[in-house]
């Protein structure tokens, strides 16, 4: 059985957790039983509906007032309890900051291996799980074989956007069981003591349908005017390369890539970005990629769906004018 650690947001199941549930059904289909969900602490009512749409056979809800403020160790204690009582042979989470963190705590506490950023996982022979996971920012995939048994599950986090989230063919009406995990004071030492719900731009960046990407080709901090205008015309967000943030042209929360944000918009419009693997790691799952670049051999150009060759400072103003003209 695959137990999925599910993260929630105001309207129910988080996108990356929905992807993980979809991914889990794939593993289940390859021979590892059914899919069940674990929810830790308070969560919105819509969560259950979302989990039913994903066809989970049971929902386990760790409930304790000490779980109201996030603590990775407490979540791990809850996950270990749930995995033990259910006899889960795989514990899966999204490779989100929390998913990776909680599973690493579980791994440390149970002295098990953990595979982060999996893109495929299939039941192998003799209770093993054959996992391919991204390494080097996705430039290579590492194959590992995890053994999963009741009490010592295979621990896997799933790379963001490795599958499209989709509801199950048939929704379920899962059983819901509430349990109080065994927590110690030590589990609560590193917990969130305060959070500021700042709506920073990286929030907009990861959810925008359109991301306008900007790289070294822009040329300087003062030269973002046309790109910002294009971003606004498209109702999108600006995303930048690491060169742009290290040169101090734009703030780090706009950085896309291995050490920035991972985005998955309908359109990624890459302007003056070469397409290094570490940047590609953050935007490769965009539905449509358009490159504007002076170099027709730049990886971003050859890997894009569409490209315009030339100076972005000539092309982008012309595009802006064309959009304004058509909008009338």
């Amino acid at each position: 059985m695959i137990l999925v650690l599910v993260e929630t947001q105001a309207d129910g199941v988080e996108l990356l957790s929905a992807e993980a549930l979809t991914f889990a059904r794939g593993i289940a289909a390859s021979g590892d039983g059914d899919v069940q969900a674990l929810v830790v602490g308070p969560h919105p009512a819509a969560t259950l509906e979302g989990l039913a749409a994903h066809g989970v056979s049971a929902v386990h809800h760790a409930d304790d007032e000490r779980l109201a403020a996030y603590s990775a160790a407490a979540w791990a204690a809850a996950a270990i309890d749930a995995a033990k009582t259910t006899g889960a042979t795989t514990l899966l989470a999204a490779a989100s900051p929390r998913g990776n963190e909680v599973l690493a705590h579980v791994a440390a506490r149970l002295d098990l291996s953990m595979a982060a950023n999996a893109v495929t996982a299939d039941a192998g022979t003799a209770g093993t799980l054959v996992v391919r996971r991204q390494v080097m920012g996705g430039a290579a995939l590492e194959e590992v074989h995890l053994s999963g048994a009741a009490g010592a599950p295979a621990l896997v986090t799933m790379a963001g956007h490795a599958v499209d989230p989709a509801p199950a063919a048939a929704p379920s009406s899962p059983s819901v069981s509430v349990f109080a995990p065994a927590l110690t004071d030590a589990d609560l030492v590193a917990r969130v003591v305060r959070s500021e719900p700042v709506v920073n731009e990286s929030g907009a960046l990861t959810t925008s349908r359109v991301v306008v990407g900007a790289g070294r080709g822009v040329g300087g901090a003062e030269q973002f005017g046309d790109l910002l205008e294009l971003t606004e015309l498209l109702g999108g967000a600006l995303g930048v390369s690491r060169v742009v943030t290290s040169l101090g042209w734009r703030p780090h929360h706009e950085q896309v890539g291995q050490t920035g944000s991972r985005v998955s918009p309908d359109l990624y419009l890459a302007c003056g970005i070469s397409g290094a693997i570490q940047h590609w790691a953050g935007m490769s799952s965009a539905k449509t990629i358009i490159a504007i670049n002076t170099d027709d051999e730049a990886p971003m150009v050859t890997k894009a769906h569409y490209a315009v060759i030339g100076d972005l400072h000539e092309i982008v103003p012309a595009v802006n004018a064309e959009i304004r003209k058509r909008k009338g």
């Binding site: 569409y306 315009v308 060759i309 030339g310 064309e322």
Partner: peptide, 22 residues
């Protein structure tokens, strides 16, 4: 390749329309 330089702007905006972002 949609074209070179500013002249390619209409072709690029055609694509933006096709994929429904403008």
């Amino acid at each position: 390749i949609l074209g070179e330089g500013a002249d390619a702007a209409p072709a690029l905006v055609d694509v933006l329309e096709q994929i429904g972002v403008v």
